[in-house]
Design a protein around this nucleic acid. Structure first.
Lengths: 192, 192
DNA sequence: ATTCGACCCTAGCGCCGCTAGACAAACGAG
DNA sequence: CTCGTTTGTCTAGCGGCGCTAGGGTCGAAT
């Protein structure tokens, strides 16, 4: 019986290794560089081993995205928790969101840009994704304003953050004004 | 002399054919389906012909993006022109933007999601891109609010629209509330 | 000790973006 | 009109991609 347990442990460890390696490679050289061959070589196994853990590359991206969602949720909650008052909380939340996107571009792409085969905005949405949205909702819900549905407000605020994050990272917005853009967004959207 | 002109005309026509075919294929089946082989087959030439017009697939995407930018600028101006008053203009602009993204997803992706090898927010940014931003600026500049730089405000508004467009299209936002999200965004961001 | 099954690897399929080199058609010079 | 030469296009192929079939190895259970 213990033999089987050891094997399961080893298998789980290898799965973590695959994901950590994929993520590292993606952050270093972009997702295009994450090929099944390179990934297999880095973990020192052959390609088919990857397919005994994941259906394919999509599913690997999806798994990294879920990891990232959990981390992002934690980062957002930490930032909001450390700030006093609704207004400061929203600002801290926005900064934390944009920081996460900037410092984990590959993970952010896995979550929101690439096709990780994940369901969104449906009942079978994976828990970490729902929880990341919930983390936004917790802070943003209290500044939605009278008569505005908190969920809807959170969606709009999130979309704005997402737009800023992706356009900035793609070089489509001048980098120096990030802070002012964030302030303007919070100023206008949050009813404080 | 007229021979050379005829050849140049034919060549330009073929280039338009390539772009139109690429765009059509992308809208029908997504950019992943736009392979140089398929594209060559559809235009009834061999693959290398493509490379006599464009450096590679990137440049084809970039060319489609520029076409799209010009179209989008025209659509935005038409919508803004047809509306009366700043507030109505902004709403019309936002709707036009989101409509364009929804009805031309492949072109929108070429412009903002994929790598078309284009420079943004720099002095050598291609004219159509600058003009599309200008079209936004024309309407949004007048509702930026006192003391807020119109360009910065336009960037923020644009980012919000971009976020709504991409998240909605990727199925990351429930589709039924699009109109309300747009209204909320305009309500809060525009100082009317 | 032998059987058996889980596990992993080698090899290969059909695709991709892209390019070298052969070849034909059209041109300009005599 | 003929004959190089240039221009244009095609066939064929390179290396790499995601993914999978099938065979061999090695440890566990009997």
């Amino acid at each position: 019986m213990s033999v089987r347990e050891r094997k399961e442990r080893e298998r789980a460890g290898r799965e973590r290794l695959i994901l950590a390696t994929a993520r590292e490679l993606a952050e270093q050289q972009g997702w295009d560089a994450v090929t099944t061959r390179r990934l297999a070589e880095r973990i020192e196994y052959s390609q088919p081993v990857l397919y005994s853990h994941f259906r394919g590359k999509r599913e690997i991206i999806g798994a990294v995205a879920l990891e990232g969602a959990a981390e992002m949720a934690a980062a957002l909650r930490a930032a909001a928790y450390a700030a006093d008052g609704p207004r400061a909380r929203v600002t801290a939340l926005a900064r934390a969101y944009l920081d996460f996107a900037e410092h984990n571009p590959a993970v952010y792409d896995a979550m929101f840009l690439l096709d990780g085969g994940l369901a969104f905005a449906e009942e079978d949405t994976p828990e970490p994704l729902k929880d990341a949205f919930a983390a936004l909702l917790e802070t943003l819900g209290e500044v939605a304003g009278d008569g505005v549905h908190p969920g809807l407000f959170t969606e709009v605020f999130w979309a704005a953050l997402h737009g800023l994050a992706t356009l900035a990272r793609a070089g489509r917005l001048p980098p120096e004004d990030t802070e002012w853009r964030t302030e303007l967004l919070v100023d206008r959207l949050a009813m404080v």
